[in-house]
Design a protein around this nucleic acid. Structure first.
Length: 390
DNA sequence: AAGGCGGGGAC
DNA sequence: GTCCCAGCCTT
């Protein structure tokens, strides 16, 4: 049997899963976890509903970001019944600013399903959990293991990284196939007596020690059983697929004031960003050429066509920059003036039925579900009003 | 299999 | 600036 020559293409190292190595990984990791685990709100409860809420919030969201939202949310909806019977707008309002608003809608739908079909109890099997809206492979395993002590794999971004380094896995983990292999591998590692703690420990290790850019190998409880650490190149793992290029987007936003009230509208549609959330009217502006002038024109036309409101677009009043996934957005906020008797009087009938329009005070607007950039505009307006004395 | 979905933390 | 986060759903 010839040895592979140095020039042969790299192949995936065979994963060696001796019972001894499995035991060692489990015991070292749990020992570390028992010593180092953070005191997090959802670790102070054994209520499966609360744990379910935390898992929804923690999707693509860092622990520190989620904590204040989690606390508020459970205070408002302490039981699955309370959430199931809440209006969607109310759920969205508590989620506003956290992003990925489908999570909020799915969580509410899941609460509904749990009350209707599971007698108000969060299911304890992975198969049943997978039927719930917004619950995928990771969450089903996380909830089953953490809330119910079921032996299940829970493979998130942290676990992908830890496993890839432990076993020097070179394959792209973003596809479902390799993902499935990772789940099988993880499943073989989960200690039968403490599945929930093991899964949390893997994630905590990934977040605090086995970090993406600067892993702290000397502090790692698994350094003696980690192939990448031995090789000295942990940051070579996991394989990273090419990222989408950043796209720049220009938007115009209308600040239309009438006395104490401002024009706001509800985002229409069954799909798409921010649906059913509220905003100061805004629209994307085609780029190129004299963008600034086009931004004004586009906005005036939009207000007239969409809402039947004739305004004069005045000066640019503020500029908001933010980034969502691979979109880099610049939002120019224009002050707009409405002539006396123009626009509409108190009974606003938009031309487009499904696009509600309201004239509201800043206080009333603050009570609506607003995405983060809209909250920022609202804060700017509040500051301006207090500055000018209202 | 690929793209959409928001926002923020860490560097 | 960059990367990536306790992912999931739709097409």
């Amino acid at each position: 049997m010839p040895r592979p020559s140095p020039s042969s293409p790299p192949s995936v190292d065979p994963v060696r899963l001796t019972p001894r190595r499995v035991r060692e990984i489990g015991s070292r990791l749990l020992e570390w976890y028992d010593r180092e685990k953070r005191d997090l709100p959802w670790r102070r409860t054994s209520d499966p509903y609360a744990i379910l809420v935390s898992e929804f919030m923690l999707q693509q969201t860092q622990v520190a970001t989620a904590i204040p939202y989690y606390t508020r949310f459970l205070k408002e909806f302490p039981t699955v019944q309370a959430l199931a019977s809440a209006p969607e707008q109310e759920v969205l309002r508590l989620w506003a600013g956290l992003g990925y608003y489908s999570r909020a809608r799915n969580l509410r739908a899941t609460a509904n399903r749990i009350v209707e079909a599971h007698g108000g109890k969060v299911p304890d099997s992975v198969a049943e959990l997978l039927f719930l809206p917004g619950v995928g492979s990771y969450m089903a395993g996380a909830v089953a293991s953490i809330a119910h002590g079921i032996v299940a794999a829970a493979v998130d971004g942290n676990v992908i990284r830890v496993l890839s380094r432990l076993f020097r896995l070179k394959k792209d983990p973003s596809g479902p196939r390799v993902r499935r292999e990772l789940e099988d591998l993880d499943m073989a590692l989960v200690p039968r007596d403490r599945p929930g703690d093991f899964n949390q420990a893997m994630m905590e290790l990934g977040a605090r020690v086995c970090a993406p850019a600067a892993p702290d190998c000397p502090a790692c409880p698994l350094r003696t059983v980690c192939e990448a650490a031995r090789e000295g190149n942990p940051t070579d793992y996991p394989f990273k697929p090419r990222r989408a290029e950043t796209v720049e987007v220009e938007e115009s936003c209308a600040m239309v004031r009438r006395g104490e009230r401002y024009l706001v509208t509800q985002r229409p549609g069954q799909t798409g960003r921010y649906r059913s959330m509220w905003e100061f009217p805004h629209i994307e502006v085609a780029k190129g050429g004299k963008t600034a002038r086009r931004a004004k024109q586009t906005l005036g036309t939009y207000l007239a066509d969409q809402f039947g409101i004739e305004v004069r677009v005045e000066e640019e009043w503020a500029e908001i920059r933010h980034q969502v996934t691979h979109h880099k957005i610049r939002k120019r906020v224009f002050r707009c003036s409405v002539g006396e008797g123009e626009g509409r009087a108190e009974n606003d009938e938009p031309k487009v039925e499904e696009t509600p329009v309201r004239w509201l005070t800043l206080e009333e607007i603050a009570a609506l579900p607003l995405a983060a950039p809209q909250k920022r505009i609202l804060e700017l307006l509040k500051d301006a009003e207090s500055f000018f004395g209202g």
